[in-house]
Every structure is written in structure tokens, then in C-alpha cells.
């Protein structure tokens, strides 16, 4: 059965896009069919997978606003066995245009529910805000993955996301469940980072992934090479962590 996973955190710079790219690559390595949806107008996911967000058309903007477009029409072949629904800067306008539309919060869900080629996993990358586009993602998803940088300020960003999740579960998507909390940008020797993971485990208990993503330059360099870390530095600690995460996600109930 297809699983739609949204990667969200209101805090920026916590590794949402890296998580989507590398988790997708990890899941592909495990033999799954994977599609990713970029709901961030900055198009970081689109860039990371080798497309230019200034020229790519159609995009998730069209997916959310054009009634006559299907999910398959937007998907691009990245050459990595990952299908990409790219984003471009037009997505900022979608935020405003959606406001005057009916079913503005359920557009993505409605599109994904139409008959189409199934995937094993659809991963949704979101912008670091809780606007209508992100809400569309939360309404469409089955599971929520929260990457949290192992520091205090990043942890605080989780609260406003969860506030919104309350409402999303009550009003739009009661099926949305927490897949897990992923500690990212972990300095392996930093006491602060370890304490942060400890605090995450205190609150989210079983839902904190065993995998944590260490802080490493390769995670920043790989997108510049239009590659996932698993391709760019397969032996790095980050690649190992994401592969382990992919296994955890793959086996999650």
C-alpha cells in the first residue's frame, strides 16, 4: 500500500529537503518505487534533484491550482528512479490564490486520490512555514516525519507544528499519524546535541528514530553536485544514517 509521508518543521534549516532527497534515495536502494513532491517555493528539492526551479513547468503550482492537470503530468524523471513533482517560485502565488478557491486545503489530497500509477512511497517536502500549501501537504499525507536539528531553538519549532497538527487531525485529516522524529545536524561530540536528542526521546519516546543525521559537509555539498549523499559520498556517516533511516521508515508499522 502506498504511503504518503510529509517531512515538515516550521523551523527552517533543519534538514527537511536533505531528508527528503536522501530518504528517497535510501528507499530506492531498498527497492521501493518513490515519488517526491516539492511544496517549497524555494525549490531546494527541485534543485537537488537536478532541475532548474526557474524554468521547470508544469510544477506543483499547477498541481494545486489547475483543475485539468493530473499528478502524472507534473512528474519529472530524475534519472535516479525517483519521480519528482517540482516546485518553482510561482508557488508563492499559490499561497494567495488558494485562499479564494474552494476546498483550498484539500487540493493535493484530491489529486493524489485520483486513479494513477501507484508508488510505494510519496515523500512531500515542505516550506518552513505553515501556510496553505503546507496545510495541503499535511491534509494529503498519511504520516508525518519531523526532522529536528539537535539544538534548543529547533526543538521549539516543533511546538507550533504540533499545534497545527492538532487542527489538521481534527478538521482535515484524522488519519495523519506521527511516523517519527529525526534528530538532524547532530555534532557527535557535542553535549548539547546529545541532550537535545535525550529531550526528544523524553517527549516522543518510541517515535524518535534510532538513526540520527550527523553534521557533515557532504550533506551541503551533495546538492551542489545534483546528487543525494548516498550517491555523492556513499561511505560517509550521513549516507549510512540516511540508509538506516530508510530501513526504519520502510519497516515502520
Amino acid at each position: 500500500m502506498e504511503r504518503i509521508i510529509i517531512v515538515a518543521n516550521q523551523k527552517g534549516g533543519v534538514g527537511k529537503t536533505s531528508t527528503v532527497v536522501n530518504l528517497a534515495a535510501g528507499l530506492v536502494q531498498l527497492g521501493h518505487r518513490v515519488a517526491v513532491i516539492d511544496l517549497d517555493s524555494q525549490g531546494a528539492l527541485t534543485i537537488s534533484l537536478g532541475f532548474d526551479p526557474y524554468t521547470v513547468r508544469p510544477s506543483t503550482y499547477n498541481l494545486l491550482l489547475d483543475e485539468n492537470i493530473a499528478f502524472a503530468d507534473v512528474l519529472k524523471d530524475t534519472g535516479k528512479n525517483i519521480a519528482l513533482a517540482p516546485a518553482n517560485a510561482e508557488l508563492i502565488a499559490a499561497e494567495y490564490k488558494l485562499y479564494s478557491q474552494s476546498e483550498r486545503t484539500e487540493r493535493l489530497r484530491n489529486i493524489l486520490q485520483l486513479p494513477r500509477e501507484p508508488f510505494d512511497f510519496i515523500l512531500i517536502d515542505t516550506a518552513p512555514n505553515l501556510g496553505l500549501v503546507t496545510v495541503n501537504g499535511l491534509a494529503a499525507a498519511h504520516e508525518l516525519l519531523i526532522p529536528v536539528a539537535a539544538n534548543y531553538l529547533s526543538m521549539r519549532g516543533v511546538r507550533s507544528l504540533l499545534d497545527s497538527v492538532w487542527l489538521i487531525r481534527e478538521k482535515l485529516n484524522p488519519q495523519l499519524k506521527l511516523l517519527g522524529v529525526l534528530p538532524t545536524l547532530v555534532h557527535p561530540k557535542a553535549a548539547h546535541a546529545k541532550s537535545a536528542i535525550y529531550e526528544m526521546k523524553t517527549v516522543f519516546k518510541q517515535k524518535v528514530f534510532h538513526a540520527f543525521i550527523p553534521y557533515d559537509d557532504v550533506a551541503a555539498t551533495a546538492p551542489a553536485m545534483r546528487k543525494s549523499v548516498l550517491e555523492y559520498a556513499p561511505n560517509s556517516a550521513v549516507a549510512t544514517a540516511y540508509l538506516y533511516l530508510a530501513k526504519e521508515v520502510s519497516y515502520a508499522k
Binding site: 534548543y152 526543538m155 521549539r156 516543533v158 511546538r159 504540533l162 499545534d163 497538527v165 492538532w166 487531525r169 499519524k177 506521527l178 511516523l179 517519527g180 553535549a191 548539547h192 541532550s195 537535545a196 535525550y198 529531550e199 526528544m200 523524553t202 517527549v203 516522543f204 519516546k205 518510541q206 517515535k207 524518535v208 528514530f209 534510532h210 530501513k247 526504519e248 521508515v249 519497516y251 515502520a252 508499522k253
Partner: peptide, 27 residues
């Protein structure tokens, strides 16, 4: 530890929106 107890700040006023935090192991 400056982070001690700060994990609580991640919890919304209404509590966590998920009820299976304790029950379902992740993987």
C-alpha cells in the same frame, strides 16, 4: 544541562496530537 526539561517546550498546550507515542514502536 541547559536543555534539561526543555523538551516539554515542544508539547502544545493541548498535549501531543498523537496518542500512540508510547504504544507503537517505531520500527
Amino acid at each position: 544541562d541547559p536543555l534539561e526539561g526543555k523538551g516539554e517546550e515542544m508539547i502544545p498546550q493541548r498535549g501531543l496530537p498523537f496518542d500512540d507515542i508510547d504504544e507503537t514502536p517505531l520500527e
